[in-house]
Computed example of a mutant assay.
Amino acid sequence: MAELYTFGYEGLAIDAFVARLKSAGVETVIDVRANPLSRKRGFSKTVFATALRAASIEYRHVVAMGCPKPVRDQYKVDGNWATYTRGFMRHLSKNEAALSEVASLAKGSTCCLVCFEADYERCHRTFVARGAAKLGGFPVLHLTGQTAIPDGDRLAVA
């Protein structure tokens, strides 16, 4: 059965990040950042895609799955995760075609949704993964530097 991974690059160097993707068997990275730019070396779109290609991992950017700026900006002001979640879920419900694209990619390849945040429970990529998994009927696993955590389960597996 296909699995859909998620992974945040916070705290990792590009080489370690790519090595972890390879060790998990990821074939395609789906970048779900609205703006695939990063102050962290190696993670801006063009350089990131090049590093992934060098490791035989395909790169796809699905811009519609990024969190809208007004939702991000509000979260920066109030830090209210419930408000952030409602805002992003409204956005997700209006972007079914992009969510279907993610599910379709995940059915055809071992995919990993990528964003910055290390904590998948505080990142929109988890909502994207759950939505795609619901459409595709596959499980979601959240990668860390060392483990894979099944969605909804804080226990790590190798």
Rank of each mutant, 00 (worst) to 15 (best):
V47S: 14
G131H: 02
P36F: 01
G131L: 08
L92M: 14
L99S: 05
F48N: 08
L21F: 03
P68I: 10
K94G: 12
F138W: 02
F17K: 01
D31A: 04
V71E: 11
Q146E: 15
A158R: 15
E117M: 02
T46M: 07
P139H: 10
R130A: 14
S56E: 15
A106R: 03
P36S: 15
M89P: 00
A129L: 07
S44A: 13
R60K: 14
F43D: 03
A98I: 11
P150H: 07
V32D: 04
Y75P: 04
G8N: 12
R33M: 08
K134T: 12
P68H: 11
P36Y: 05
A13Q: 13
D73C: 04
K69T: 12
C123E: 09
C111F: 00
A51N: 15
G11E: 08
R20I: 05
M1P: 07
V102Q: 04
I30F: 00
G87K: 09
G66I: 06
G25C: 10
S109K: 14
L21T: 03
P139I: 10
V29F: 00
K134Y: 01
K22P: 00
A156V: 12
L37I: 08
F127R: 14
F116I: 13
A148D: 05
F7P: 02
T50K: 15
N35H: 07
T110M: 09
H142W: 02
G145D: 12
V102M: 06
K134C: 09
M89Y: 00
E121I: 02
Q74H: 04
P139M: 09
T50M: 11
D15G: 07
E96T: 15
V140N: 01
S109H: 11
R72M: 13
F116G: 04
D153C: 12
A158W: 05
L141I: 05
M89C: 10
M1W: 03
S100H: 11
V29T: 08
R20V: 05
H124I: 08
K45P: 00
T46L: 09
A103W: 04
R86S: 13
G79A: 11
Y59I: 13
C115E: 07
T147N: 12
A49D: 09
E101I: 02
D78K: 08
L113F: 01
Y59A: 14
V128I: 06
R53N: 14
Y9H: 13
N95M: 10
V18E: 01
S44L: 08
A54F: 01
V140L: 06
A19D: 15
K107E: 15
A82Y: 03
H61C: 11
F43Q: 03
Q74N: 10
L4H: 06
R53Q: 15
G108Y: 00
Y84G: 02
L21Y: 00
A55P: 05
F7S: 11
T110E: 09
C112G: 09
D153M: 06
A82W: 01
V128W: 00
A106E: 01
L105Q: 07
S93E: 14
A2F: 01
G131P: 03
L4Y: 03
R60H: 09
R125E: 03
G66Q: 05
C112Q: 03
S44I: 05
E96M: 12
H91C: 05
W81Y: 07
G11D: 10
V71D: 07
L143E: 05
F7I: 06
G152F: 02
G108D: 13
G152L: 03
A55R: 08
